[in-house]
Each structure stands twice: as structure tokens, then as C-alpha cells.
């Protein structure tokens, strides 16, 4: 097995991240590294802070302290130009797909390149987009097996197909790192498995890094070479997947798992 090169800086690094929403201390010092080409699954019960962590990684949520580095460059509290440049390298796949409902699958995929073009939406709107971009969007749809659905609107597609369009949009963005926030939680088991296989295949073919939250422990062990476990705003498990005991995974969902139920460090010390 090829080990990650220790001398090379990780592509994504979270360092001692704290996030607070009012009185709620949501992330309590979260740190981890993600190497180039590494695929990790993030596990944890609802309310443990997984989604907030993912949102801090591309600046959608505000960090109280700590920092996120992308390719060795800090993007936390960076000027908006730097943050936008970093976001281009972080492809995001959402639980609810987040396609623009009024636009075709092809147009939604084209929008993946929005951040890369000088004139933003004007450069990627179907009417003005360069032919090579329109062709590349079509190729992305082909890779997710939906070339024949290019003119369909999201409402005319199944949930699994919509998520595949979202994956094609991520491909169009050509990122280095993929962040997938419960990408199969809205899908039935069969469609979910297909989407997960597709996502993993594309990530491996493109040599991307992937951080994916899941709720299915079996799938997590099957797909993730590494599993990061969170409980009440902290990372409590971070190990290579084959060596992890199932009981350790089950423990992530037992006891005080939610951020709003767990005692604060001060309360715990008292």
C-alpha cells in the first residue's frame, strides 16, 4: 500500500477549529489532515457537528478560532478573493443536491465553472458560454451516465439522477478536494449505493481527495479507507478503516453524542 508522503504538506488541514453558535459550542477543537488522493468518511450522530465542520472548510460557516489550510495556505478569515479562489478547489456535494430547479441539467453542470470564469454567470450561462465549456459540461454528464437527460429539469429527474447531476457539476468545477455532506441521505438504498460507487470511482479516477459524511456504517467501512469519528463537537476516532472495530463505530452513536447535550469543558472539569 502506498503511504501518504509525510514530507508533502496535506492538501487540506483543519487545525484546532472552534465554532460557536450563540451559547452553543458546536466544534470544540477539531483537527485533521487530508492527504492528496485520500478518501475519508466522517461519521457521527446527528447534531455532533459534522455538517458545521464541512461548512467551515470552505468558509460557509464562520470560525471562532483555529484555521483551515488549503495547500499550505490559510483560508480562514482570508480576504474574499482568496476565499473564492480556495472554494474553486473545494467541490461540494450536498444532501439535497441544491440544483437550480428552473434550469436544465446541462445548465446546472455548466454552473460548476462559474467561479473559474472572469465574468461569472455571464461566462457560463448557456447563451454566452464558450463551446468548449458547453462540450465539457456534456462530457461531465456523460461520465455520470446522464448525457441523455441534458435538457431535463431537476424535477424531471429521480433523486439519484439529481445527485449525479450535482456530481457532474462538481466535476465541471475540477476541484482538488471533494466535500460530500451526506450525499446519499435523501436517496433509497439502491440509488444511494449507486451514487456512492459513482462518487468514489470519479474521485479515484481524478485523483481527488474526498471527505464524505455518511450514516451507514457498513458503507463507511466498505468505501472509506480512513474513518474519522465525531462525537459532541470533537474528533474521537481517526484510523484506517480495515483495522477499526465495529464496536468503536457503534460507540459514536451512544451516550452524549449531540453538541447541545454534552457538557462544556468547564462543566466537565467542575
Amino acid at each position: 500500500m502506498r503511504m501518504p508522503d509525510a514530507a508533502k504538506p496535506p492538501v487540506l488541514r483543519a487545525h484546532e477549529i472552534h465554532v460557536r453558535f450563540g451559547a452553543l459550542h458546536v466544534l470544540r477543537g477539531v483537527s485533521f489532515d487530508l492527504a492528496r488522493g485520500e478518501g475519508a468518511v466522517l461519521l457521527g450522530a446527528n447534531g455532533c457537528g459534522k455538517s458545521t465542520l464541512l461548512r467551515t472548510l470552505n468558509g460557509l460557516a464562520t470560525v471562532e478560532s483555529g484555521r483551515v489550510d488549503l495547500n499550505g495556505r490559510t483560508i480562514t478569515d482570508a480576504p474574499s478573493r482568496v476565499l473564492r479562489a480556495a472554494r474553486r478547489q473545494l467541490g461540494y456535494v450536498f444532501q439535497h443536491f441544491n440544483l437550480v430547479p428552473q434550469l436544465s441539467a446541462h445548465q446546472n453542470v455548466l454552473f460548476g465553472a462559474m467561479g473559474q470564469r472572469r465574468f461569472g454567470v455571464l461566462s457560463v450561462a448557456n447563451a454566452f458560454a464558450r463551446t468548449e465549456d458547453r462540450e465539457r459540461a456534456m462530457q461531465c454528464l456523460e461520465r455520470v451516465g446522464l448525457a441523455d437527460r441534458a435538457t431535463h429539469r431537476p424535477a424531471e429527474l429521480s433523486g439519484g439522477q439529481q445527485q449525479r447531476v450535482a456530481i457532474a457539476r462538481m466535476l465541471m468545477q475540477a476541484p482538488q478536494v471533494v466535500i460530500a455532506d451526506e450525499p446519499i441521505a435523501s436517496l433509497d438504498p439502491k440509488a444511494g449505493r449507486e451514487v456512492l460507487e459513482l462518487l468514489w470511482r470519479i474521485v479515484e479516477e481524478e485523483g481527488l481527495s474526498l471527505l464524505c459524511t455518511l450514516h451507514q456504517l457498513d458503507l463507511a467501512q466498505e468505501f472509506g479507507k480512513r474513518i474519522i469519528g465525531m462525537k459532541a463537537g470533537r474528533v474521537v476516532l481517526d484510523a484506517a478503516s480495515p483495522g477499526i472495530d465495529r464496536a468503536d463505530l457503534d460507540a459514536l452513536y451512544q451516550g452524549a453524542v449531540r453538541v447541545d447535550a454534552a457538557p462544556t469543558p468547564q462543566e466537565a472539569a467542575a
Binding site: R87, R88, F94, F111, G120
Partner: peptide, 27 residues
């Protein structure tokens, strides 16, 4: 959701408005 998705591609505020918010409001 759609506006957030476009924001996370690194698109600017005006592009997000024109790409996600205006199409949804158009009708």
C-alpha cells in the same frame, strides 16, 4: 440551497444572484 451551491464553486455575489436567485424568482 442552489445559491449556497453556486457560492461554494467560488462564484461572486452577483453571479450567485443571477444564477440561482433570479431564475427561481423569474415566474
Amino acid at each position: 440551497g442552489p445559491a449556497e451551491a453556486l457560492t461554494s464553486t467560488g462564484a461572486g455575489r452577483l453571479s450567485v444572484i443571477a444564477g440561482a436567485i433570479l431564475p427561481e424568482s423569474f415566474a
